[in-house]
Design a protein around this nucleic acid. Sequence first.
DNA 1: TTTACTGCAAAGCATTTGCAGGGCG
DNA 2: CGCCCTGCAAATGCTTTGCAGTAAA
Lengths: 134, 134
Amino acid sequence: MKSQLTRSQNTVLKLLKQLNREISAQELYIELRKAKLSLGLATVYRALEALKLNAAIQARLLSNGETLYSTTQQDRHHMTCLQCGTSIPIQDEECPVHELEDQLRQTGKFEIYYHTLEFFGLCSPCQVEQHSNA
Amino acid sequence: MKSQLTRSQNTVLKLLKQLNREISAQELYIELRKAKLSLGLATVYRALEALKLNAAIQARLLSNGETLYSTTQQDRHHMTCLQCGTSIPIQDEECPVHELEDQLRQTGKFEIYYHTLEFFGLCSPCQVEQHSNA
DNA sequence: TTTACTGCAAAGCATTTGCAGGGCG
DNA sequence: CGCCCTGCAAATGCTTTGCAGTAAA
């Protein structure tokens, strides 16, 4: 946890907190311009990378090659369609993974910042489509 | 679940079963050549895509942009280092997610094929390195 | 002044797509 | 005969990197 963040890292982190949703680097770059806080795209990527290593934000990879970033505040689990890529967040009363996470922490070998839990399959519309092709 | 697979889909699936490990499309392409079962790289990608939609295999995305494929046989959970990218499989006696997965199945809205559970943070070597930069 | 951060433009790289040839039914 | 599968090569798109200018300490 670095004590001091650079100017652009702060800018990125603030906007990320403000938006309070998962967002790609590219989209964040656009949002920054809108907010008159323009940063170079490379700088956005570098800031996100640094914040990730500081445990300030978390990342989730999409099958289209994008990465979505968000502040580490709560667990976000997803159901993602293998066909159309739609990703639906699951709000579970309580995360079934925390116990395991605590166990892993106690081994001391690995410093855990966050986790991702994702279910893959077919959403309703794509199920229909898929079966008609079978 | 398509009844009939193409020749190349069969070839890919067989080798995947035989290798019994997570493997990237590129590496699989090389393994196929070694096994005298050469397929075009595009064909490998297309076969993997089709097998994924048939629930025959599962995929896991890496932060370097690669996708790792494996047959759907057992849950594989991982701890992945944000810095060096090392990914350690966790063998847990029992998967803490199945109950939630069953609940989600019962909603009927989404047909679940498999899930991924991944913990992100720093491995021991990278913890040291990270702290010395802080 | 010395080091670290930033922006721009140029790669890098896994994956996808267009298209023509070939195989299978 | 017609349709789907394949392979090759070109294109795509996100992300990374080299380098020179700039701000910070």
